[in-house]
Structure formats: structure tokens, C-alpha cells
């Protein structure tokens, strides 16, 4: 049984399909390479520009432009063919989305439920700012205590005194 996923295979499962897969990869890339060498109109960079926005439909979380499996080579080929026939990148991405599902997109769609992912951090920021302002004001409004809180280990006390001394000296020098 084969799974066209990426690096971390359950060791040993690939077994005899190994060389066949390697051959398949090489053949796949050979086709790609040959097409490019023949001066095909679509460059690898154009294909990668579209593939970059997509995920390998089968692997877990691998962008399509870096995925090395034969299946991914096939999909990049598909992108190449579609670009050659004049499809625009947005159309190709829409095609992939319809054919393989939303998870093939690198960025979740902005409409619908997944739109939340874009708005929630913004909401969080506003809420965070609001809470910060409220808390700051509440703390600043407290009457000043007469007895200062004594910090038990004045580990920075020396540094503080030292700093004050520095400041004094600097002022002296600046005169």
C-alpha cells in the first residue's frame, strides 16, 4: 500500500516500491526537464509561482513548489499545462480548490467560517489594547502609598546606585 506523502514514512513500508518510485520521480522530472529544454513557453519559475500558493494535496503541510514526490511533479505538470493554455494563476488555484478541497490552499479562504482566522487576531489586539488601557488607568489612579514596598533582595540596588552615580558623573563631565 502506498501513500504519496513526504519524509516521515513508517519505516520499512516502502519496501519494494522504492526503486519504482525513484524511477517514477526521475521519469516525471525528466518530462518536465525535457519540456523546458525544448524551449516550452512556460518557465519553471512561473509554475513555481503558482505552486507556491498551494499545498501538496496528499502530503501533510508541504508547499507544492518544494514537494518532491511523483504526485507533486504531476500536479506541477498540470499547472504548466494550464498556464500554457492561457489560464491565469487565480483560475488555476480555483481549479485546484474545487478539485481537491480547501486544504490545498496555503492560505485559508477569507469567506465563511475560515474568515474568522483572519479577524480573530485583530479582535484580540483590540481587546488587548482595551484591557491594557483600562488596567493602566486603574493602576495609575491608585493613591500613592506612604510606605514604599521593600523588595526583599535588592539585587539591583547596587546597579541602581551605580547608575545614579554614573548619571551624576556624566552630568559633571557634560558641563
Amino acid at each position: 500500500m502506498q501513500k504519496a506523502s513526504g519524509k516521515r514514512q513508517a519505516a520499512g513500508r516502502m519496501g519494494k516500491w522504492a526503486m519504482a518510485l525513484v524511477a517514477g520521480v526521475l521519469v516525471g522530472l525528466l518530462i518536465v526537464g525535457a519540456a523546458a529544454a525544448q524551449g516550452g513557453k512556460v518557465t519553471d519559475d512561473q509554475v513555481n509561482a503558482v505552486a507556491k500558493q498551494l499545498n501538496c494535496p496528499v502530503c501533510e503541510n508541504v508547499p507544492l513548489d518544494v514537494c518532491e514526490t511523483q504526485a507533486c511533479a504531476q500536479w506541477r505538470d498540470l499547472i504548466r499545462q494550464k498556464l500554457a493554455t492561457g489560464d491565469k494563476p487565480e483560475q488555476i488555484i480555483a481549479y485546484f480548490r474545487a478539485t481537491y478541497g480547501d486544504r490545498v490552499l496555503q492560505s485559508p479562504p477569507r469567506e465563511g467560517f475560515t474568515g474568522l482566522i483572519w479577524s480573530l487576531p485583530f479582535v484580540g489586539l483590540i481587546a488587548g489594547l482595551a484591557i491594557l488601557v483600562v488596567v493602566l488607568r486603574r493602576m495609575a489612579a491608585q493613591p500613592k502609598a506612604e510606605a514604599e514596598v521593600e523588595v526583599e533582595a535588592k539585587t539591583d540596588a547596587v546597579a541602581d546606585e551605580y547608575r545614579k552615580r554614573l548619571e551624576r558623573e556624566l552630568k559633571e563631565l557634560d558641563k
Binding site: 499545498n55 503541510n61 508547499p63 478541497g101 480547501d102 486544504r103 490545498v104 490552499l105 496555503q106 492560505s107 485559508p108 479562504p109 465563511g112 467560517f113 475560515t114 474568522l116 482566522i117 483572519w118 480573530l120 487576531p121 484580540g124
Partner: peptide, 26 residues
């Protein structure tokens, strides 16, 4: 923000039965 991006796919799959990927651009 990082947590939202990381954990959202679980919520999405549970609530809408739709698998999504959150990639680097987000």
C-alpha cells in the same frame, strides 16, 4: 495569533467538516 493559526484547523474540521491548511502567508 500563532495559536489561532495553529489550532484553527482542528476547530474547522470539527465544526464544518472541512479540512484547511494554514500556511506561512497567514
Amino acid at each position: 495569533a500563532v495559536a489561532i493559526g495553529t489550532y484553527f484547523p482542528i476547530f474547522s474540521e470539527l465544526l464544518t467538516n472541512n479540512k484547511i491548511t494554514v500556511g506561512a502567508p497567514y
